[in-house]
Design a protein around this nucleic acid. Structure first.
Length: 359
DNA sequence: GTTGAGCGTT
């Protein structure tokens, strides 16, 4: 009997698997559609298309057969066999994650949402750069009476980002916004006066600026005012920088506990008028850096730098969403025209999705 | 060079 078995036993043993993960399904396929597709290979015990909270298909599914052999057969025949309409590549059929793998996936997901695995981490080796940033930061704080709190915080953050990133082209913004320097350097902050912004926002956000270089900075900055997704180590730094007031008006409760909860905080657009478009970002800016830049203006729902999928390079523009229009306006007022290196940021409201284009 | 994709693991 010569049967061509191409799958190594090791692949299927020890997993006890009859359950498949199916990817690259068209998003319009239903459970039934998928079931029909997989029925020829065996008896299906369970077939579920994964859907988001809104009920939209995620374009993948779980299919559980009665036996491993059936599952195996489906893999052999269907995997990569065709590209379904609406899918970006060919059908994926493989064994679903085991418990253990799921655990790992969870951890990774949480880690990435907390910004622990961030390109920024790669630059954090230079501790002296960090301390240097603190010194400069304190100097800035001393001068902050000359600037609106928001502009100051934004500036400090820019400075810190620059300092933490040795290769950064962000070299100049700070020196040029010190009104007391007495030199003739013209301010490069374009919109220094920030109209009518409640200082508490800046104060609430302030401790984030002084985040220790332990890779947690993004975790601290994500969704600050109200949701503070990490605890510990956070008891000293507000005082360390002479801050007064209550850093967190309501008790920070959510810590990295329920992954589901974190998931719900994932990038979303805000309501109309709450989303801003940022152009001329430095090439090396990541989500978390952009997030930090805009934290002073309010509750940031999401911050996304647009990345070329093929090259993984930033396209130098991105989006930040706030939970209210006033924050978005404040961000525009303060940050539009903000000079970074040779370029100035362009910050404006995001175009509505279904933009009725005037011709 | 200009406006929120995406390979998705219950």
């Amino acid at each position: 009997m010569n049967r061509p078995i191409q799958v190594k036993p090791a692949d299927s043993e020890g997993r006890g698997d009859r359950k498949l993960f199916v990817g690259m399904l068209g998003k319009q396929l239903s459970d039934t559609d998928v079931k029909k597709m997989f029925e020829p290979f065996g008896s299906i015990e369970e077939c579920t298309v994964l859907r988001g909270p809104d009920g939209a298909s995620k374009g993948c599914a779980f299919v559980k057969y009665q036996s491993n052999a059936e599952a195996q057969a489906a893999i052999s025949t269907l995997h990569g066999s065709r590209t379904l309409p609406g899918a970006s590549s060919s059908l994926v059929v493989k064994f679903a994650d085991t418990e253990k793998e799921r655990g790992i996936r969870r951890m990774q997901q949480v880690a990435s949402q907390l910004g622990v695995i961030s390109p920024m981490s790669l630059h954090l080796g230079a501790y002296n750069a960090y301390t240097q940033a603190l010194v400069q930061q304190q100097a800035l704080v001393a001068q902050s009476a000359y600037l609106s709190p928001v502009a100051t915080v934004a500036a400090v953050q820019m400075q810190q980002l620059a300092a933490l990133n040795p290769n950064s082209i962000i070299a100049t913004p700070i020196t040029s916004i010190t009104p007391s320097s007495g030199t003739s350097t013209p301010p490069t902050i374009a919109a220094t006066p920030v109209p009518a912004l409640p200082p508490p926002i800046a104060i609430n956000s302030y401790p984030q600026v002084a985040a220790p270089p332990n890779g947690h900075s993004a975790s601290e900055t994500l969704y600050t005012n109200g949701v503070h997704p990490y605890q510990g180590e956070d008891t000293t730094y507000p005082a360390a920088y002479g801050l007064v007031g209550q850093p967190f008006p309501h008790q920070p409760t959510l810590v990295a506990q329920q992954p589901q909860q974190l998931q719900q905080l994932q990038q979303r657009e805000g309501p109309e008028g709450c989303n801003i478009f940022i152009y001329h970002l430095p090439q090396e800016f990541t989500d978390s850096e952009m997030l930090q830049m805009f934290l002073p203006f309010g509750n940031v729902i999401s911050a996304k730098v647009f990345v070329d999928r093929a090259t993984n390079q930033s396209k130098c523009f991105g989006f930040v969403s706030f939970d209210n229009p006033a924050s978005a306006q404040a961000a525009i007022q303060s940050m539009n025209g903000f000079q970074i290196g040779m370029k100035r940021l362009k910050v404006q409201l995001k175009r509505p999705k279904d933009a009725n284009r005037p011709y």
